[in-house]
């Protein structure tokens, strides 16, 4: 009797969990779950929709940014799409510094959603639902160990020739994902990068007092990831000195990456690297070009 009561309460709990969980189709991965989601309830021929890869990781485990830093590797996806669909570049949220003795990686802990646009060709026939597949290669790590894995994800989407409403089960995740994306730098900012012997020095005139900034380099092997970034406040801006990587044997033309002021305020920068002293003017390219960094 006790046993069956327990069984009933277990089932009730399971049902309750199922009912309160936004997504039923998450796939278990090493130390977490992963789900392929869409922002809208269906797709409309000739229009773009957003897909998302929603990671939920156990405490202490992380995945990596497009530049993983000193170790690790970013998740990779091989899209399986019916003809008429193409998936664009992944839009990477601002990463965190993951610090171990002597090394620093860039990535995400606990919950993160990577989003990407999917273009739907006008010629796609409405009526039949389509299926989007994603073959994922993953590396999930703690500070103690890394575990590689694979996941096969799938999502069925109806095709209708009318504008699709947001999917209430996923809309919040896309809102949160967009909030965590770095922004294009405001036109009024003046940014420059100087190449000194051992460092790159970013000088930023942003029109207000800034107390903190961290740079995440898009390319590997440009800056020493684990070196302290020397932040100096200036009137209306700041200077940030980044030690060069030992692996950097040739001069670089541009410094690209994310300049983060706080967890939810970060900017994409893409600046020509000037010789020491010769300041160059700001020239951000916005998210379009930066966004062309592909998940491979």
């Amino acid at each position: 009797m006790r046993g069956s009561n327990r069984y009933i309460s277990f089932c009730a709990l399971a049902l309750l969990l199922r009912a309160t969980t936004t997504h039923a189709a998450s796939t278990p991965i090493t130390h977490g779950t992963l789900e392929l989601i869409a922002e809208n309830q269906w797709i409309e021929p000739g229009h773009e929709v957003y897909l998302g890869l929603h990671f939920q990781l156990e405490n202490g485990w992380h995945i990596y940014w497009v530049n993983p830093g000193d170790s690790g590797e970013p998740p990779r996806v091989d899209w399986q799409l019916p003809s008429g669909l193409t998936v664009g570049a992944t839009e990477w949220p601002t990463p965190h510094r993951l610090e171990s003795p002597s090394i620093v990686d860039f990535g995400y802990e606990s919950v993160v959603t990577l989003i990407m646009p999917m273009h739907v060709d006008r010629s796609l026939a409405a009526g039949q639902p389509i299926r989007v597949g994603a073959a994922m290669k993953l590396l999930v790590c703690s500070h103690e160990m890394c575990i590689p894995g694979k996941a096969q994800l799938s999502l069925a989407l109806p095709v209708k020739s009318q504008p699709p409403p947001l999917d209430p089960r996923t809309a919040d995740l896309f809102v949160a994902a967009r909030k965590s994306l770095p922004l294009a730098t405001p036109k009024s900012w003046k940014l420059s990068v100087a190449d000194t012997k051992d460092s790159f020095v970013i000088t930023a005139k942003v029109g207000h007092q800034t107390r903190h900034a961290v740079f995440f380099p898009l390319a590997e092997s440009q800056i020493a990831n684990a070196a302290p970034q020397n932040f100096v406040p200036l009137p209306g801006g700041f200077r940030l000195t980044l030690r060069k990587s030992d692996q950097l044997l040739k001069p670089i033309q541009r410094l690209q990456g994310v300049l983060a002021f706080s967890a939810d305020r970060a900017y994409l920068i893409d600046l020509p690297v000037g010789k020491s002293g010769a300041a160059s003017n700001s020239s951000d390219i916005g998210s379009a070009q930066f966004g062309s960094v592909q998940l491979q």
Binding site: D70, S71, P101, S102, C141, M145, S221, D246, L249
Partner: peptide
């Protein structure tokens, strides 16, 4: 090619500096 990013797992050094 004399220097590259050394991919892999972080070296599991002692936590003590």
């Amino acid at each position: 090619t004399a220097a590259t990013r050394p991919y892999g797992c972080s070296v599991k050094y002692s936590d003590a500096t």
